[in-house]
């Protein structure tokens, strides 16, 4: 049944093909905002939000403008401009509608434009042939949402470990970035275990 397709997409974008840990997308914010669990959660939710909306909007742009007028080669330029505008609009909308949410997510939103996972999910929606398939819109939505959840999960795990690392006794030269990368490597190794799962 169709529901199985969506569950497969959701599960595989969160665990098997986790954008951060197995596709190495969105590494800059992953390392940048994973020092504290609070900010990691804020960033994660902002990314889920933007990714889902970006997936939906790029779906329409691709299907009804780029494909229809045979200008698929303008994909990159169209997508990045759309994403940049979405981020701006979302920022303004949240600011107007919910100042509380704005205070929690606001500072992370501008950072998302250059988060390659967002453009990545838009491009991957096209490359995996979702846009031309029957349930295209739902599939892209699920993939966008799943990719965001996967990002949040990776960010939360990492920030939890990094908070504990503060008190750990690490060799001086290994402190900071080097140990963070090695931990990311171990996490990514753990996520490889999901690869054996199939439906």
């Amino acid at each position: 049944m169709e529901i199985k397709i969506f569950l497969t997409i959701l599960f595989s974008t969160i665990f098997i093909n986790n954008y951060v840990l197995s596709q190495t997308l969105g590494i800059c914010p992953f390392l940048g905002v994973s020092k504290k669990t609070d900010s990691a959660a804020g960033m994660g939710f902002a990314v889920i939000f933007v990714m889902t909306i970006a997936s939906i909007i790029t779906y329409f742009i691709y299907k009804y403008i780029l494909l229809r007028y045979d200008i698929v080669y303008l994909r990159t330029i169209a997508f990045i401009l759309v994403i940049a505008s979405i981020v701006q609009l979302v920022e303004m909308a949240i600011n107007k509608l919910s100042p509380v949410l704005y205070r929690a997510l606001g500072i992370f939103l501008p950072l998302i434009t250059t988060n390659c996972a967002v453009l990545g999910v838009a491009v991957l929606n096209v490359e995996s042939g979702f846009i031309t398939s029957e349930y295209g819109l739902l599939m892209t939505m699920v993939q966008g949402f799943g990719a965001g959840v996967g990002f949040l999960l990776a960010l939360m795990l990492m920030s939890g470990i990094r908070e504990r690392l503060e008190t750990a006794d690490i060799p001086f030269n290994l402190k900071g970035m080097p140990i963070t990368f090695i931990i990311a490597g171990l996490l990514s190794l753990a996520f490889m275990g999901f690869a054996g799962m199939s439906f």
Binding site: L21, S22, Q23, T24, F172, N173, L174, G176, M177, P178, I179, T180, F181, I182, A184, G185, L186, S188, L189, M192
Partner: peptide, 21 residues
Amino acid sequence: VAPGAFITLGLMLWAMNSIMT
């Protein structure tokens, strides 16, 4: 695969830090 990339870059950064210090 991805873990190898993370760990190798981590080790390269470690080596560079050690040289710097």
